[in-house]
Write a protein that binds this DNA or RNA. Structure first.
Lengths: 253, 253
DNA sequence: GCTTTTAAAACATGATTCATGTTCGCTATG
DNA sequence: CATAGCGAACATGAATCATGTTTTAAAAGC
C-alpha cells in the first residue's frame, strides 16, 4: 500500500477534529473526494473511524487506546531496536509466551528464524510465525480476538496459558511506572497479561519510552514482578532509576 | 501469483518421478532454469518438496496426504459449490465449529459475512475470518498447528473444544464410506475431529465426491454419527445410498 | 588444489496489478 | 421532488511482479 501516510494524515485529522466532511479532507490531503472516500472506507474497516453521510467521525474517544493500525508505525524504528534487544535475551530452545501489541509483533518477526517455542497472544503474531515455516515451533492459544487488535482474550486464552509453562514471558504494555506498575487499556487484556506472567519463570517487559510516562486504566502487575525492562534511549532517566530501584534490570537500546 | 499452473505442474512432476533435475523440469515446463529454481524454492517453502543440488526431491510419500497447497486448487469449483450448500444449512446466530481442510476453508470465506459465531480449527480459516472484521464473531481454539496444514491439534485444541458447545460442526474428511466411517490421514487430526463432533448438536460433513471412494488411516467416527453429508454431483450413487441408509441426510450440489 | 557444474545476485523487461481520478447513474435525505 | 453524496465503471500512470539473461560466487567431483 503506497498511501500509508495519507491514510495516517486523514485518520489523525478526523481524530483531532472529531468529525470532518469528505470535502474538507480532500482539500487537506490534496486528493480527490473519491480517493478520500476510499481511504475512509479502509480506515473504517480498520476500526479507526466511522463513516457518516458526507464525511467521517472519529471512533477514538479521548483517553482511549488509538487503533492498532495507527500505533503500528509510531516509532517503528525504536520498536525494532527494542525488539532486537529482547530477542537477544532469549536463548535457543527456550519456550516463550509473547504478548500482543506492536512491539511484540516485531519480536515475533525476529523470533521466526530462531529455534524456540513461542505462544503468541495475538493473531497478528500468529500469522507472522505461521508463514513460511521458520525454525520456531508455534503454539496457538485459544481466545476471542479483540476486533482491530487481534489480541486473544477471554477464558479460552486464560485456560491455554494455565495449561503451559514458559521460560520467558515477553510483555508489552500501555503504561509503565514504578509507582503505578504495568498497566493496560483493556481489562481482558490485563487478565491475559497477568496469566502470561504467572506462567513464566522470567518476565521481560518490552516497550518504547513513550509508555514510561503514561498510566492506563487496567492494572496488571507491580514492576517488582518484572525481571527485565527493555526500552529505548529516550526514556526519562528518573523513571528508569525508579524502576531499577524496584529490582528490575533495565536495558536501553 | 500468476504462475500457479506451472508450480502445480512442477510439483506434480517431482512427486510422480520422486526426484528430477532443474534442467529436466525446465524442459518440461518450457521455462528457464532460473525460473524453475525460483519455483522450487517456493514449493520447498510450502513443504511440497525438498531442494537438492541440481534438482528437487519429493517429500510426499506414497499413500500420504498431498500438501495443502496442492489440494487447494483441486476441484476448486466443486468445493465452492459444496461450501455454499453447507453455509445454506447454517442459520443466523448459530455457533459453528469448522474443521480444517480446503473445503472448510471455503466455508470460512462464505461465513465471514454471516452473523454467526465460528471456531475454525485451522490457522488459514482463522486468518480468513479475522481479516476485514466481517459480521461473524470469531473464537480461536488453541493448539499446535500442523506444519503446512495449519490444522490445530494437540491437547490445547482438545481442551478448547471441550470448553465450548456448538449448534453445528462442519467436518471435512480424507475418506468417507458407509462401512469404514469417516477417516482422516493424521491421528491428531482425527482426535480433534472427534472432539468437534462431540461438542456439537448437529454434524455436517462436507467433502468433494473424490473422498467417497477413499479410506484414510485414522478412524474418526461411524457415518451414523453424521446428520448431513454435502458433496458434489459426481459422487457415486451406491456410496451415497449406503450412507443414506445409515440415516444420514445426503445433499448433492 | 583445480575444474566444472550449480546456485545465487544483479539487472533488464514485459505483464499485471494498484492507486488515483473522472464520469455517470443510483440512493437517500431533506 | 430536488439535491447532495455515494458507489460503480472506466481510464491512466505508477508500482510491483514474473521471467529471463548475464555475471559472480559457491559447491561437488576429480
Amino acid at each position: 500500500m503506497g498511501n500509508a501516510d495519507r491514510l495516517r494524515q486523514i485518520g489523525d485529522a478526523v481524530r483531532a477534529a472529531g468529525s470532518l466532511t469528505v470535502a474538507e479532507l480532500a482539500a487537506l490531503a490534496g486528493a480527490s473526494e473519491m480517493t478520500v472516500r476510499r481511504d475512509l472506507d479502509a480506515l473504517a474497516a480498520q476500526g479507526v473511524l466511522e463513516r457518516v453521510r458526507g464525511g467521517a467521525r472519529s471512533l477514538v474517544l479521548r483517553g482511549e487506546e488509538p487503533p492498532f493500525a495507527l500505533r503500528a508505525q509510531d516509532g517503528a524504528e525504536a520498536k525494532a531496536r527494542v525488539a532486537a534487544a529482547v530477542v537477544d535475551l532469549i536463548g535457543d530452545g527456550e519456550t516463550v509466551v509473547l504478548d500482543s501489541g506492536t512491539t511484540c509483533l516485531e519480536v515475533a518477526r525476529l523470533l521466526r528464524g530462531r529455534r524456540v517455542t513461542v505462544m503468541p497472544l495475538s493473531l497478528q503474531a500468529v500469522a507472522v510465525l505461521a508463514e513460511g515455516a521458520g525454525q520456531a515451533s508455534l503454539l496457538v492459544p485459544g481466545g476471542r480476538p479483540r476486533p482491530g487488535e487481534g489480541a486473544l482474550t477471554g477464558p479460552l486464552a486464560l485456560a491455554s496459558l494455565a495449561a503451559v509453562r514458559f521460560d520467558t514471558a515477553v510483555i508489552g504494555c500501555c503504561g509503565l511506572a514504578a509507582d503505578q506498575g504495568l498497566t493496560a487499556y483493556d481489562l481482558d487484556d490485563a487478565a491475559v497479561k497477568q496469566a502470561a506472567i504467572r506462567s513464566a519463570r522470567r518476565v521481560v517487559a518490552a516497550t518504547d519510552s513513550g509508555k514510561l510516562t503514561r498510566t492506563a486504566h487496567a492494572f496488571v502487575t507491580p514492576v517488582a514482578a518484572l525481571d527485565t525492562l527493555v526500552t529505548d534511549r529516550s526514556a526519562p532517566r528518573e523513571a528508569l532509576d525508579a524502576i531499577g530501584a524496584a529490582g528490575v534490570t533495565v536495558r536501553t537500546v
